[in-house]
């Protein structure tokens, strides 16, 4: 494997559509729950240990060869909000395109055939990591990091937050990211043995509710 491939995949400029999504930050800012660096950190920590943890386990399980159709159904079951399911599939479709162009593989072609409108993004992320020759822990890191880097960069735009402060938030979360990624790989190994029910189902009700409210707005900066 090439460790440098991880940098390509994890780069915020990887063209897979993430720039148009705030990971729930726009709804949280509007509701007054994120007002600066401290509350952004709280928000990101909550997202990391819920949506981030589930996404990391899904991605790691996909790298370990668990059936993506089974994983996609498990992701649906762990995403109550229809708006979030739609966003996850849109991002999954966009990542599928970018991944097929970047790391062509039969598995990614098969995924595109199976899910022409997109599978859940973390599942696609796992198969992308596989195609790039990366391991389960790499995919878990990507998913966990995306779960906090998206809201952090969106908040810079939404609040005109000092970008150094936003980056400091991410740096302070790094030790927790390590733990979430490691745990996700353990979870994924359980999924290989026991099936998709072994995936974590940590949920963040406010993220789900906020996504539904956000989807109804007439004016917004971000798609989700």
């Amino acid at each position: 494997m090439s460790r440098a491939a991880l940098l390509v995949l994890a780069d915020g400029r990887f063209p897979a559509g993430g720039h148009a999504h705030s990971g729930g930050a726009e709804a949280a800012v509007k509701a007054g729950r994120v007002t600066g660096a401290a509350s952004l950190e709280d928000f990101c920590r909550g997202r990391l240990h819920t949506a981030g943890r589930v996404a990391a386990a899904l991605a790691a399980a996909a790298v370990l060869g668990v059936d993506p159709v089974e994983l996609d159904a498990a992701a649906d079951a762990r995403t109550p909000s229809p708006a979030l399911r739609t966003a996850a599939r849109k991002l999954g479709r966009q990542l599928t395109r970018a991944a097929r162009a970047t790391w062509p593989s039969d598995e990614l072609d098969a995924l595109a055939r199976e899910f022409p409108k997109g599978a859940h993004q973390p599942v696609v992320l796992g198969l992308t990591a596989r195609a790039a020759g990366l391991g389960a822990v790499d995919a878990a890191y990507c998913a966990a990091y995306e779960s906090v880097s998206g809201p952090a960069s969106a908040t810079v735009r939404l609040l005109s937050l000092d970008p150094f402060e936003a980056t400091g938030v991410l740096a302070r979360l790094a030790p927790e990211l390590d733990r979430v990624a490691d745990r996700a790989v353990e979870d994924a190994r359980c999924v290989v043995d026991e099936g998709a029910d072994a995936l974590p189902a940590a949920s963040a009700p406010l993220l789900e509710i906020g996504a539904e409210v956000h989807a109804g707005w007439g004016v917004r900066l971000f798609a989700s």
């Binding site: 559509g17 720039h19 148009a20 705030s22 395109r97 900066l221």
Partner: peptide, 13 residues
């Protein structure tokens, strides 16, 4: 996401 130039040039997916 507030950046048309990203959506038409850098990340066209």
């Amino acid at each position: 996401g507030a950046c048309p130039h990203t959506a038409i040039r850098d990340d066209i997916s």
